[in-house]
């Protein structure tokens, strides 16, 4: 049985897997990091998005053995050690960008990658197109787009604090 070593949210793990075991199965079932979700079986919904290194990937479409040696970040690993939320998490809450919460971890992980790859800023259209790989059935995306725009301003250093949503 193959063995893989992964660093997940800064912690090293070595686990036994089958060749066919998906990364998301290791995260959810072996490491009990259940914030990463499975919402489809055609690699489209994006509920399973995690980061490998700097890049967002769909953890349902990569074998655990392919991720051997990788540095992986999941939704559980993006807040600061003291519990302070990542600006993207904070923005999703401030702008009511989640309802049932199921797509949310993948959405947040994709959004962070999207913002990091556009350090000079993002238009509304770029945000919408950048979410091609994430499906949300609850929100109509309206508030997700607003949250990402607000978080981008903080992540890109345009603002020191998150812009508040309208009261």
């Amino acid at each position: 049985m193959p063995q893989v070593s992964l660093t997940v949210n800064g912690k090293s793990h070595t686990v036994d897997v089958e060749g066919r075991t998906l990364l998301v199965e290791v995260l959810r079932e072996k490491l009990r990091l259940t914030g990463t979700h499975v919402g489809c079986d055609t690699s489209q919904c994006g509920a399973c998005v995690v980061h490998i290194g700097e890049n967002s990937v769909k953890s349902c479409t990569i074998l655990a053995v392919q991720a051997d040696g990788a540095q992986i970040t999941t939704i559980e690993g993006i807040a600061a050690a003291d519990g302070t939320l990542h600006p993207m998490q904070e923005a999703f809450r401030e702008y009511h960008a989640l309802q049932c919460g199921f797509c949310t971890p993948g959405m947040v992980m994709s959004a962070i990658d999207l913002v990091k790859k556009h350090p000079s800023g993002l238009s509304e259209q770029e945000i919408r197109e950048g979410l091609e790989g994430n499906i949300c059935r609850c929100t109509g995306y309206h508030n997700i787009v607003k949250a990402i725009a607000a978080a981008a301003d903080v992540m890109n250093g345009k603002r020191t604090e998150l812009a508040r949503a309208a009261e």
């Binding site: 959810r28 990091l33 259940t34 914030g35 990463t36 979700h37 499975v38 999941t74 939704i75 559980e76 807040a79 939320l85 998490q89 999703f92 809450r93 401030e94 009511h96 989640l98 919460g101 199921f102 949310t104 971890p105 947040v108």
Partner: peptide, 18 residues
């Protein structure tokens, strides 16, 4: 702002499959 968001945003929601 919603009370439930903190757990969902932190990956600590408890859905049936979790």
């Amino acid at each position: 702002r919603r009370k439930e968001d903190l757990r969902f945003l932190s990956g600590r929601g408890q859905y049936t499959d979790d």
